[in-house]
Each structure stands twice: as C-alpha cells, then as structure tokens.
Design a protein around this nucleic acid. Sequence first.
DNA 1: CATAGTACCTCGCCTGTCAAGGTATTTCAC
DNA 2: GTGAAATACCTTGACAGGCGAGGTACTATG
Lengths: 112, 112
Amino acid sequence: MSIAGDLIRGHTDAIILARLLQGDSYGYEINKVISTLSSGRFELKEATLYTAFKRLEELGHIASYWGGSGPGARRRYYAITPSGREACYRLLSEWRETKEIMDKLLETEGNA
Amino acid sequence: MSIAGDLIRGHTDAIILARLLQGDSYGYEINKVISTLSSGRFELKEATLYTAFKRLEELGHIASYWGGSGPGARRRYYAITPSGREACYRLLSEWRETKEIMDKLLETEGNA
DNA sequence: CATAGTACCTCGCCTGTCAAGGTATTTCAC
DNA sequence: GTGAAATACCTTGACAGGCGAGGTACTATG
C-alpha cells in the first residue's frame, strides 16, 4: 500500500467506529469499504482489523453477534455501543486537532 | 499531553525534517519549537526525538556537527541533506494524502 | 470434486514511543 | 564559592499496535 502502517497507527479504532456509526457490519465488509473509500490506497490488514475488534469489544465500545451467512462463511457482526459512540466522537475531534497541529508543524516558509 | 503518542507515530520524521528545512537546529530547541507551535498540546519526548535523530542520520537525511554552546551545555546541531529534503517533500505529500483519505473514512452520514 | 471467493482467527516479529535514569555545562542567587 | 536551576545530550528496557504468515471452514460454480 502507498500509505505506510505507522501512519494509520492509532487511527484504526477511529476508522472502525466511524464505519459502525453508519450501521452494523462485519470484518470482511468493513475491510472492503475502507479499501473502496480510499481508492485502494489504504488497507487495514486482517490481523490488524481483528485485533482492533477484540480490543474495542473488551473496552465495551462495540458488541458482536453471529449473523446470517451470505454467500460465504458465517459472519460476526459488530454494533457500536453508547460508549463506542462517545469514543468515536472523541476520536473524531482528536483527529481534527491532530490535523490542525500537524499542519502548523509541517508548515515551511518557502512553502512546499 | 492531549494528543496521544500513537497519533503522531510515523509523523515525527516529517516534523523534524520540516523544522530543519527552516535552518539548522538542535534537539532541545526543536522540542521547544514544537511545543510552542502546538500551544503545548503536542510534545515529542526526548527519547523519541533523539531516537529519530539517530535514525534520520543513519538514513543520510540529516547531518550533525557540534556547535557553539550558548547559555547551557554544548549543542549538537543538525542540518538537512539533499536526500532529507526529498524525503521531507515526500512525507509532506504523504501527509496530505493521509488527511484526505482519513477524512473520507471518518465521514459519517448524519455528520458528527 | 476441485477451485475460488467469502469469512474468521491466532502467533510471533518488528518498530516507534516513552518512562526512567544518567551525564555535563553554565548561570545566578545567596 | 557553593548549591540550585536551566540548558543540553544520551541510553536502556518495557510496551503496544500493525502485520506477515499461516490456519480453519463454508458456499457456489463449473
């Protein structure tokens, strides 16, 4: 991928929660959506994704349930919880702040 | 600090190089500048900073020399090299791309 | 029945951050 | 002059997140 792993570090939770804010979904689908939305430039590796799900569920930010299997194997759906919503809003505002600060720090006089 | 370490992970090199693009500087000063520019909301820990210097020097992106000591102890100055400039521009454009993609991925319909 | 696509999961490595601790020099108050 | 504070640099070890590699299982299609 063109965007290195460390750039998304710390942002995976935000991305997943923001996606679940749109409605329940499952791992495989979320991965596809992320890939599509970013025109293939961004990709959450499966190991990363499932690790994140586990972490978020332990934190109580998401809840899972086994859902109907479509064309393939059975799916584990995830739903965002109230605390997940809160966390998501917090992460979104943190992202806005990070952007703002980063832009200031990366600013160069004879501008790039 | 209000912005957690993982949010800047992968951006420290960009920040340091962008700062050195403004002219030679040394660790202690760069740290202060970052703190000031971000109104104290952002802080590169010393260990992180010196680790990054070492890494960047090994990569040939920066070069160091001992400079005159001002009011305190002696200072090790860093200068950006041609390859460092290139890397910096690349990182800057990567940052722009990351911003764009992240904004798309974090977008929510009933917007936050 | 084999293959490809869907779907989930785990282990172990790697790398960047940082808490903690250490060294050396200069300045300034007392 | 001596002690504290600020300046300035550096290293070690622990920790956490991302991910390569490998594995399981089910369904549809030819």
